[in-house]
Amino acid sequence: MIYLQLLLSFAQVGLFSIGGGYAAIPLIESQVVVNHGWLTMSEFTDLVTIAEMTPGPIAINAATFVGIRIGGAPGAVVATLGCIVPSLAIVTLLAFVYYRYKSATFMQRILKVIRPVVVSLIAAAGIRILVNASGLGGAVDLVAVALFAAALATMRLSKLSPVLVMVICGVIYMLLEIIVK
């Protein structure tokens, strides 16, 4: 019942990724890498990289990517459907409440409390990606660690586009590895 698993997994991603954008990353990781082992941590990081470079919400990108690998084209459709069904239900409900009472403050208040938690979940996922990519805690890849520090400094200090930072990292790493080895 691979299709049902895909549907339910991505429904959880759709249901619990609150706060948009990066909030989906820890959830996708938890479903796809930890719970089901559909992707390795490295493949998952490649997926995030690809999602960052292509248009579209990361959850939809992930659903299509994982769906195709696990269940072909039908898998992609089922996983994407799973992703949007919770949104359909909840957004419609919220819209109903909004048009009735013209106020969304109750939900906004709840969001304020969820946000700090989501921030930490995103940070934790980012650190796990870093550990995986740089071998921290195992055989440390010094080139990767130095590159990470430089990339983070660039992100903090300049307004360079994230995609550009990522591509430059890839090229520098490839060139360094080829020259050094």
Binding site: T49, A123, I129, N132, A144, L147, G170
Partner: peptide, 22 residues
């Protein structure tokens, strides 16, 4: 190799976003 380097970049982006959010 290219993907490996980009993974490092993605970690930097996600952590930079986390810092902004925090």
């Amino acid at each position: 190799l290219l993907l490996k380097g980009m993974q490092v970049g993605v970690a930097a982006i996600i952590l930079s976003v986390s810092i902004d959010l925090a």
